[in-house]
Amino acid sequence: MEELARLAGVSKGAVSLALNGKPGVGPETRGRILRLAETYGYTGRGRAAAAEANATTLRFLVFTNAGLVHEEYYQQPFFRELIHHIEERCRMGGYSLMFSALEEKNYEQGIQSVMEEPTSGVILLGTSLDAARIADIADKLPGLIVLDTCFDALPVHFVEINNYMGAYQAGTYLTGHGHRRIGYIASEERIHNFGERQRGFMDAMAEARVEIPGSSLLAVPPTLFSSQGPLRDKLQRLKDSGQPFPTAFFCECDYIAISAIKALGELGFSIPEDVSVIGFDNINESQIVAPELTTVHVEKERMAAWAVDLFTASLHRQPAVSTKVKVDTLFIERASCRRLEPSAD
């Protein structure tokens, strides 16, 4: 391993991560290390153990560059926390965990490689995958468990967030705190989770008889660095339009909400005195931004536990029917929202 590290120009730790299929190194570095290992005939204990794929090995499968899931997905806050909890649950159960990150553009080749190196179970990160893709993967990998999305018509195990509930909670919170001029900031990339959040929030608005005008429905890229510029421009146009500016915004994820807080601040708005902001996910960064973000907490630890426990159950008996688990959310009130006085709107 030391020789491979020297040849690849990386640390010994990076070599270990690459050889064991774990996140923490980029795809180009991983490929370079694996090619060198093959060239020089490296057959260390980690590779031998992975090849054995015994009955206590679980694979975490990710297709990168598929919508929200980027090559460095393990550095994205939501996925980073989710992976941590899956690792902990596997450790508690005495299972080995293997990571496979495949590029969506090389789907056929990638899924074939997974089929040729079988493990006793697969958890698929389904965040950005559609029903047709998941159905095809499930046909090729029996007993598949799909995490972070759900398609009711597919006979597949799913573990998802109760997205509808979380956004409904956010909507009722805002209307209950006197807000009537409310904006909605969506992700430009549409996935199952965001669709359910929009449905829940709009149902809360309908119950409170609050109508969101088209000018207050915005859409931006769902990542922090790419969303802030476009969002600032759209908020500037809304501010200059002469229409009443929203007293609150709901954002489909915390990344967008943090961008909104920064963009609104650059436009001269004070949070929450002028505008309230709510996010969704409760990533760790939501407590670092100033003011701390009011958001919807997602039970990532419970989602991970359900996924691994479904794998555990399948080791003893393959169920005749699949299971779909929906994990409820918890509304977290922090400093980015305030109650409006009756005359404030």
Rank of each mutant, 00 (worst) to 15 (best):
Q75P: 00
E38F: 06
T39G: 00
E52N: 04
Q76S: 10
A48K: 13
E71D: 15
Y40M: 13
T64Y: 01
Y74M: 03
Q76T: 07
P77G: 06
A48S: 12
F78L: 11
F60K: 07
Y42I: 04
G44M: 09
A51Q: 09
Y40V: 15
G41N: 05
G67H: 04
A51G: 14
L68K: 12
R47P: 10
V62D: 01
T56R: 12
A51W: 11
Y73C: 00
F78N: 09
A66V: 04
N54A: 06
G44P: 01
T43I: 05
Y74I: 02
P77H: 12
A49W: 11
E72D: 14
V69N: 01
L61E: 01
A49Q: 14
T39E: 15
R59V: 07
L68N: 08
T57Q: 10
Y40C: 11
G41I: 02
T43V: 08
L68D: 07
F79T: 02
T57R: 06
Y73I: 00
T56L: 11
E72R: 13
E38D: 14
E38H: 08
F79I: 11
R45P: 07
F60Q: 08
A50M: 09
V69M: 11
F63T: 09
G41L: 03
F60Y: 14
A48L: 13
H70R: 10
L61K: 04
V62N: 00
F79W: 06
Q76A: 08
A50W: 00
V62P: 00
H70D: 04
G46K: 07
A66Y: 03
L58C: 10
T64R: 03
R59L: 12
A53P: 01
A49P: 05
T56Y: 13
R47S: 15
L61S: 03
Y73L: 02
R45F: 10
A49C: 09
T56V: 10
F79A: 04
A51S: 12
T56C: 09
G46V: 13
T43H: 13
L58I: 12
A53R: 13
A49N: 14
A55F: 03
R45I: 12
Y74R: 03
F63N: 01
R59I: 07
H70C: 02
T57A: 12
N65K: 12
T56W: 08
Y74E: 04
G44T: 08
Y73S: 01
L68W: 07
A48P: 00
F79G: 02
N54G: 06
Y74W: 15
Y74L: 02
T39P: 00
E52I: 14
Y40W: 10
A53F: 05
F60L: 07
Y74A: 03
